[in-house]
Amino acid sequence: MVGIVIVSHMVSIAEGVRDMAKKVVPNELKIIAAGGTADGSFGTDSAKICRAIEEADDGKNGVIIITDVGSSIISAGLAIEGLSMQLHQRVKIADAPIVEGAIAAASEAAKGSDLMTVLNVTETAKSVSKRG
């Protein structure tokens, strides 16, 4: 299954989004939180994100990264650059809201969909209206 990495400037947000997404999928889906800096303070850490990507990867299906704002996107990009070329090619940063994107990604990945399908479904979460 496609793995998922949640990147936020705050540990509590990354872990909360991960926990919420895990409520809708089987336990074997890898959803890894990579929030905060190495010491857990506010910010992002490309090395921490790199380790999360490696942990989320199953060796064949790839990984979707879902970020919050600003430098989390930059840090995720730097983390991807630090990966082996083989893994680098199987990692995508989704342009999606962190909560809705994580739920959409988890739901689609749990179906066994491929990386690009999971990415596309994740990114459609930004256009879902919250008004009835």
Rank of each mutant, 00 (worst) to 15 (best):
E55F: 03
V5E: 00
T44L: 01
R51W: 01
K48P: 00
V7Y: 00
G101F: 02
A21S: 07
C50K: 15
V24D: 04
Q86C: 09
R51I: 11
T122H: 07
H9C: 04
A33N: 07
V5I: 08
A76T: 06
A38L: 12
G70Q: 06
T117W: 06
P26I: 13
S107H: 11
T122E: 09
H88T: 13
S41R: 15
A102I: 09
G132W: 13
V25D: 00
T124A: 15
V5K: 01
D95K: 10
N27Y: 11
V5A: 02
D39N: 09
E108V: 14
K111Q: 13
A109D: 04
V69Q: 08
G36Q: 08
A106N: 05
M85R: 14
S84A: 07
P26K: 14
A125L: 04
D68Y: 08
V118L: 05
S113E: 11
M85N: 15
A76Q: 02
E15D: 09
D95N: 10
I66F: 02
G35S: 08
S127H: 10
V17L: 01
I73L: 10
G70N: 04
G112F: 06
I98C: 02
H88I: 12
L78F: 04
T124V: 08
I4A: 03
S72F: 03
M116N: 14
L29N: 04
G101N: 08
R90H: 13
A110I: 12
D45I: 10
V118T: 11
G132S: 15
M10T: 13
R131W: 11
V24L: 11
A109V: 13
A21F: 03
L115V: 09
V11A: 02
A52S: 06
M116V: 13
S113M: 08
S8M: 08
A104M: 13
V91C: 06
N120L: 12
G59Q: 05
A76K: 02
A109Y: 06
V24R: 05
V118I: 10
T67G: 02
L115T: 10
G82A: 14
A110N: 08
V128K: 12
D58P: 00
T67L: 04
Q89E: 15
D39A: 09
A38S: 12
P26G: 09
D114C: 10
S129V: 11
L115S: 06
L29G: 02
S107C: 13
G82E: 07
M85E: 15
N61L: 06
E100V: 09
R18K: 14
E15A: 08
T37A: 09
A110S: 12
T37R: 14
D114P: 03
A76E: 00
A21R: 05
D45G: 03
S72N: 10
D68C: 05
S8K: 07
D95F: 07
A34P: 00
G3K: 06
G59S: 05
T124H: 11
V17S: 03
I64T: 08
G62W: 02
P97D: 06
K126W: 01
M85Y: 14
S12P: 00
R18F: 00
T37F: 01
S72A: 15
A109M: 07
E28L: 10
R51H: 10
E54F: 00
V69S: 04
T44A: 07
S113I: 14
L87F: 01
Q89D: 15
Q89R: 15
D57S: 12
G59C: 04
K30F: 04
D95E: 10
S127A: 10
